[in-house]
Design a protein around this nucleic acid. Structure first.
Length: 487
RNA sequence: GCUCCGGUGGUGUAGUCCGGCCAAUCAUUUCGGCCUUUCGAGCCGAAGACUCGGGUUCGAAUCCCGGCCGGAGCACCA
């Protein structure tokens, strides 16, 4: 008789915030972020980099940045510099950087071992022929070559012409997914590599170099997009041939972002055509663009952590990004006046002379001090704000607007309140500074800002009252240029 | 077409493995109110979801089957 089942079920004890707990070991974990250096990092990369970094941080593991530059056609040289910069922006620091282009001899070594084991073979069929056979679950003639024949061809491999031969890893020629059947491990590439020049003509395919490296570098967990699902299956065969233990694989879903082309190649094309101002054009989804728009890296980090690593797709909305970002930006951004499409006005009947008005830099942090605005009965107002009725020029006077006529009504705030005057921003006529705000769609708002804006530095975040948050991007002779973040 | 994977409020998530404590969590969003010399912040309140249909079960977001919808892969790219 069976003993009573006294085993107490372990009930839902985990309450991880954001990321689900990692399967497998939690001791000495090793993870990697492995981008192809085809451009700077974008949000899609953050989706890979952040969870890796976060898991490593939680478990005090090791994070490897591995640059996957095994296709010379897809290497954009500046990316070698940009990738670590972008990671740093995200607050991620890899413990080690590996360049796959440094490791060709290692790949050759394992390729040869595979041949010797009879687990890989040199295939001289042309692609179409092989595909035809493969799609019908038929092995190609090369599959039966002896180890000796294969080794001989392997030695001759570097002298062959492009397309003449490839090295294939034996899988299951009847695998139900044709993509898995006897995949290519090595191919001939006669193209100059930014880091290798023409040193090699035999290049590993991603599935091969990735699996070899993941094993050799001691990866315990591999986090990758679900577009790699089939690749994981392919690589499984390599692990089996070599008698290696598989790391834990986790496949996450696609990330879509509202109104943004995440594709690096499209961005590159647009930049070359001059449609975009550069990798940090506000319309792009690069981290550089987000940074330029005043998105705090913590916004992206926490958003990605929240999205987690589940395999369903997610679409991130700007509303969500802005909402999160506001939490970070709001306390640090000092307030200033900006008027778009300024119209110079005179408040008829105002006769209190010239007064200096002080306003706090931040209403909730008065210790930061005040900025000063000069009021003498004239001002610039935003064209949009000039509508019939009573308005209060904030902290100055209340005025009645009637067509082009603007006349003094009163001064006290209480009067404004009792008359339900709309409070609007204004800029002194005597002292002001031209300001341009580049909007997320690339358009530019032109106007005037209060003179204290001159004290700001590039990178400072501000809030233009009633307009929104913006980041000071550049100070030119013409104007101070901001990039708009959000309301 | 074939091979896989997935579907919880507008959006992102928790819960699904091990059915009941889920009349479903949290964030963002939206809408009210309070406060405030910003349309920001803060405070209070509210709105809003288990893709559909069957089945199993005393009981299903959770298990099974089918439909629908979405996605990925099907390279000598990564």
């Amino acid at each position: 008789m069976e003993k009573y089942d006294v085993e107490v079920k372990e009930k839902k004890t985990k309450k991880e915030v954001g990321l689900q707990e990692l399967p497998g070991t939690h001791e000495n974990i090793v993870m990697r972020f492995a981008p192809n250096p085809s451009g700077p990092l974008h949000v899609g990369h953050a989706r890979a980099a952040v969870p890796n970094a976060e898991y490593v941080k939680r478990h005090d593991g090791k994070l490897i940045l591995r640059i996957e530059d095994t296709d010379p056609k897809r290497v954009y040289e500046p990316a070698y510099e940009m990738i670590p910069e972008d990671l740093e922006w995200l607050g991620i620091k890899a413990d080690e950087i590996i360049y796959q282009s440094d490791r060709f001899e290692t790949y050759y070594d394992y390729a040869k071992q595979l041949i010797e084991k009879g687990a890989a073979y040199m295939c001289t069929c042309d692609g179409a022929t092989f595909k035809e056979l493969k799609d019908n679950c038929k092995p190609c003639p090369c599959r039966d070559n002896s180890v000796e024949e294969n080794l001989e061809l392997w030695e001759k491999f570097p002298e062959m012409d492009v397309g003449e031969a490839v090295l294939r890893v034996k899988t299951d020629i009847e695998h139900k997914n044709p993509a898995i059947r006897d995949w290519v491990a090595m191919r001939i590439v006669k193209e100059s590599h930014p880091r290798l020049g023409d040193k090699y003509s035999i290049y590993p395919m991603m599935n091969f170099s990735v699996a070899v490296d993941d094993h050799l570098l001691g990866l315990t967990h591999v986090l990758r997009g679900k577009d790699h699902l089939a690749n994981t299956e392919k690589q499984k065969y390599l692990y089996e041939h070599m008698g290696w233990e598989m790391p834990e694989f986790i496949h996450y879903g696609r990330l879509k972002m509202e109104d943004i082309a995440l594709s690096t190649s499209k961005a590159m094309e647009g930049i070359e055509k001059g449609e975009y101002s550069g990798w940090d054009d506000p319309r792009l989804g690069t981290l550089k663009a987000l940074a330029r728009r005043g998105i705090d890296p913590r916004t992206i980090y926490s958003l990605i952590t929240e999205i987690g690593v589940k395999s369903s797709d997610s679409a991130i909305s700007w509303k969500k990004i802005h909402g999160l970002n506001r939490n970070y930006i709001e306390p640090i951004a000092n307030r200033y006046f900006f008027v778009e499409n300024p119209v110079e006005i005179t408040v008829d009947g105002y006769d209190d002379g010239e007064v200096t008005i002080e306003r706090p830099l931040h209403a909730d942090h008065t210790d930061r001090g005040n900025r000063k605005l000069l009021f003498d009965g004239t001002a610039y107002l935003a064209k949009e704000d000039i509508n019939d009725g009573i308005v209060r020029l904030m902290d100055a006077v209340n005025a009645d607007i009637s067509g082009d006529n603007i006349s003094y009504n009163s001064t006290s705030f209480e009067d404004a309140r009792s008359q339900k005057a709309k409070i609007i921003q204004w800029v002194p006529v005597k002292e002001n500074v031209p300001v341009k705000i580049v909007m997320p769609d690339g358009s530019v708002k032109k106007g005037l800002g209060e003179v204290d804006i001159k004290e700001l530095k590039v990178g400072d975040m501000v809030q233009f009252e009633r307009v929104g948050f913006a980041r000071l991007d550049e100070i030119t002779d013409d104007a101070i240029i901001f990039y708009f973040a959000h309301k």
